[in-house]
């Protein structure tokens, strides 16, 4: 960054730049005064300007990944995260950095006067730096969003696979949602683990809450059932809706050797018979 007046300009006009920039940001259509009070915005802008001044003085190049830019990157990470949580859009967040261009360019133009060549060069340098910083905030914003999605996925995975003991030796596994490979793995593991823990001989897999059954889902189900059988427990599949029964037959999925029942109640009756418990229809004595 030789022959540039950027650090000098920022240093000399720091307060004036901040005022110009604030004026610009407050007038912009992307201003979210509902989410961010202007005092806080001013504080963030002041900090950005201060760190930019230090970084541009120390840095040897426009590469913002260099160590000299670390404090500024940290500050932007913080700002981007907090704005992401407050509900700003990625472009609104990036505009925070991009809007600094106009005040900076006009000060640079002032400083260079008639030297068009020097001005063009410095304008290019400033654009390179601010663009990278702006994109950096977008990236952080996106990463924060992705982290939220990942966490929610994990939570859904854990929420959706409860294995319930309904009787001595009978487990029930109500499945809800879509069965993909990752979920089947979790379902299979938790079911087999509970079979070991409880010594259950029968497990009812209820698929009332499964929206669609395709060949892959059917294959996953069959795998789970086979694994349970290898351990010595029988599986009953229940809650098969008419459409799903039709799909299974049309797809040619072979469910012979698997006990299937229309409702969970039927499956439970079958399971109780299987473990040797008889249920009569009479109400219990008071």
């Amino acid at each position: 960054m030789e022959g540039t007046k950027i650090p000098e300009v920022i240093e000399r006009h720091q307060t004036a730049l901040l005022d110009d920039w604030m004026k610009q940001q407050l007038a912009a259509s992307t201003l979210r005064s509902d989410l961010l009070p202007s005092a806080e915005l001013r504080e963030q802008s002041r900090e950005f300007l201060e760190l930019l001044r230090q970084a541009s003085r120390q840095a040897g190049s426009t590469d913002v990944a260099a160590p000299a830019w670390q404090p500024l990157r940290d500050m932007l990470t913080r700002v981007s995260r907090s704005r992401g949580e407050q509900g700003f859009s990625p472009s609104e967040t990036a505009t925070f950095v991009f809007s600094f261009k106009q005040p900076l360019f006009s000060r640079l133009a002032e400083a260079y006067g008639g030297d068009a060549k020097g001005l063009a060069w410095d304008t290019w340098l400033a654009t390179a730096i601010l663009d990278q910083l702006g994109l950096f905030t977008t990236e952080v914003h996106q990463k924060a969003r992705e982290a939220v999605i990942m966490r929610q996925q994990q939570e859904m995975l854990e929420l959706s696979t409860p294995v319930v003991k309904v009787w001595d030796g009978v487990l029930a596994l109500p499945l809800i949602g879509t069965l993909d490979s990752a979920r089947t793995q979790v379902v299979m593991e938790s079911l087999l683990q509970r079979i070991v823990e409880t010594g259950a001989e029968v497990a009812i897999i209820d698929i009332t809450g499964v929206a669609t059954v395709d060949t892959l889902v059917a294959q996953h189900l069959i795998k789970t059932i086979t694994a349970a059988r290898l351990m010595g427990a029988d599986c009953i599949v229940s809650g098969i809706r008419p459409q799903i029964a039709a799909t299974i037959v049309h797809l040619g999925v072979d469910l012979t050797g698997v006990v299937t029942k229309a409702s969970l109640a039927d499956a439970l009756t079958h399971a109780l018979q299987r473990v040797g418990v008889s249920v009569n229809g009479r109400p219990a004595r008071a």
């Binding site: 593991e189 070991v196 259950a200 059988r229 010595g232």
Partner: peptide, 22 residues
């Protein structure tokens, strides 16, 4: 064991004709 059962299923060894118990 559950891990063994899962492995056998993934290997396609479903041990047909073999009785199992807990």
């Amino acid at each position: 064991q559950p891990a063994v059962a899962i492995t056998l299923v993934e290997l396609g060894l479903e041990l047909p004709g073999v009785r199992t118990a807990l």
